[in-house]
Design a protein around this nucleic acid. Structure first.
Lengths: 309, 309
DNA sequence: AGCTTTCAATCGGTTTCATCGATAATGCTG
DNA sequence: CAGCATTATCGATGAAACCGATTGAAAGCT
């Protein structure tokens, strides 16, 4: 069987992406004539109509088969890139661009420690950061816009995960709260309290609810008109005597409290209530070994203040 | 990023397959010098050592990275072939080579009816047959040696399945057996009988055991030294008064009884004990639509004697 | 309607590179 | 050391990928 050339497939997906011969050609760094001829050659070689000819309208129109082939061309090109990328990763591990996604309840507290360490350990690594909710990060990972995630387990998605550390929960209280007299706070003691958590979508909220055995949505937030969008906001709300909250230890060692009139006590319960911090990447990623090699550095930054996983 | 050419990848996998430059080159229909130069160019382009040079011993030795790249090259080539194959299937459906796997409890009874019908309906289809146990067929499907399976559900494996028909079980009895007086035989009536089934590995055995609610291995066979390897043998054993057995209706309409002194009665039970005949192919196979188009012809051949699914 | 603009296809010329055949280099064997 | 098997290298050749310019065709504007 005569295989289509990767070049031709690039032309095809570029045209699908840009919907315009000239711009697609520019994206492929060839002239329009070359791209046009290449696509015609591809159609002839496959003996299949890929785009509607003749009715030269606003933008190129793909036939159903053409769309199907665009999708298959994408995966074929990705597979070819995986070959080259595997070789590149083996030749020069932990260098080049790395697009890292981090969730908002990790990033602000870990990155200030992690980034300098990584810059020193892997000076050739060019780290692009994106902070977003778990769902969006996972989506970005799956469609190739991100290479690596730093998030909290459990999380849904088809990815390989590498647990790094346990991140236990602490109860944050106003300084004169009656629970402040205890060394640690059992989960059962939260029952009568007004527990405030981050708004829906933050995995920390789900993890906290799971850790405390709460049914979803019991913790007051939206009903009361509170919309805590960051842990810093939550701390301010605790300081304002609006209620109590749970904070991951990472946030505490990250200095979230500052000089707020808020104190914390470990949350006490069976199997140490908390979340698990982890790295995640696409299954069979060419750079999987590389990412796993990154783990010790991240774990070291984590463990400057968080208990071992 | 500069992608490796499919040609280079072909050279690589051919060398891995043949372990010999000359033979690999012949398999690629090029001269040895071309293949050698191509591999050197690939190594240079990827800036990676793929084979152990210098210690020119018996057969080429791949570096660990080389082996990894061979595997990735295989999937990349398969993805490229999928592009071409999709186009080919759209251009000319149900033509060309089709490697079909069939299980032994379907093949002999269905193929005599199915093959002539397919030859007539799709004269350009070149059908290669392989008869084997479900496990091996599924393995063959998954690694690409087979394109399409005709088997009985439930079956394990990662594949897309298309149920075609229900194939109810019948009880086969010696002519003077005391159960012969009934119009149909309830599952409970099998309790006191010596039930003989195919040897282990045949899915029909598992399906029969499941349909009858038998724990695995209760039906006598190996313990008694019987090793029934085909339904025809089983019928002979029933005729010889060694016990009774279960036969799928497909076998009956396929004429398995001939003029044996054996009679059959429908097996009666909740949700009609039997198996489901189905087609199966690789998920995202380029020819999936084609295979589904084949289903009516197969179902027609099945339904010449088997109840609708 | 007539003009301009935009866009894709076509054409001729240039260059690159995959391939071939032949030959050299290497290592093993008798 | 001669002979054999196997892989790397070299120079020549031909196909095809690419470019720049041009043509053809449809849409928009006045």
């Amino acid at each position: 069987m005569l295989l289509p050339s990767p070049q031709q497939l690039r032309y095809l997906v570029a045209l699908a992406d840009h919907g315009h011969f000239g711009r697609a050609a520019a994206a492929c760094a060839v002239t329009q004539s070359t791209l046009s001829a290449g696509l015609i050659a591809l159609e002839r070689q496959l003996a299949a109509g890929l785009l509607e000819r003749g009715t030269a309208v606003k933008r190129p129109v793909f036939t159903p088969l053409g769309l199907e082939l665009v999708a298959r061309a994408r995966t074929a090109l990705a597979a070819l890139e995986a070959v080259a990328e595997t070789a590149a990763a083996a030749r020069d591990p932990l260098s080049g661009p790395l697009r890292l996604g981090v969730i908002p309840t990790i990033g602000p507290f870990l990155l200030p420690r992690l980034m300098p360490a990584l810059r020193q350990a892997y000076p050739r690594l060019r780290l692009w950061l994106r902070e977003d909710l778990t769902d969006r990060l996972v989506a970005g990972l799956e469609n190739g816009r991100l290479d690596l995630l730093l998030l909290a387990l459990p999380a849904a998605g088809t990815m390989e995960t590498l647990p790094l550390a346990q991140d236990p929960f602490h109860v944050a209280l106003p300084r004169d709260h009656h629970l402040a007299s205890r060394d640690s706070v059992p989960i059962s003691a939260l029952a009568g309290e007004r527990l405030m958590l981050l708004e829906d979508g933050h995995c920390l909220r789900a993890h906290a609810e799971a850790a405390c055995g709460l049914p979803r949505g019991i913790a007051s937030n939206s009903d009361e008109g509170f919309a805590a969008t960051s842990l810093h906001t939550l701390v301010q709300m605790v300081a304002g005597n609006l209620g109590i909250t749970l904070l991951p230890q990472l946030a505490l060692t990250g200095g979230i409290l500052g000089d707020s009139p808020v104190i914390t006590r470990p949350l006490e319960g069976s199997n140490s209530p908390g979340r698990i911090l982890a790295l995640a990447w696409r299954p069979r990623s060419p750079r999987a070994a590389e990412f796993a090699g990154l783990a010790p550095a991240v774990a070291a930054a984590l463990n400057e203040g968080v208990g071992h996983g």
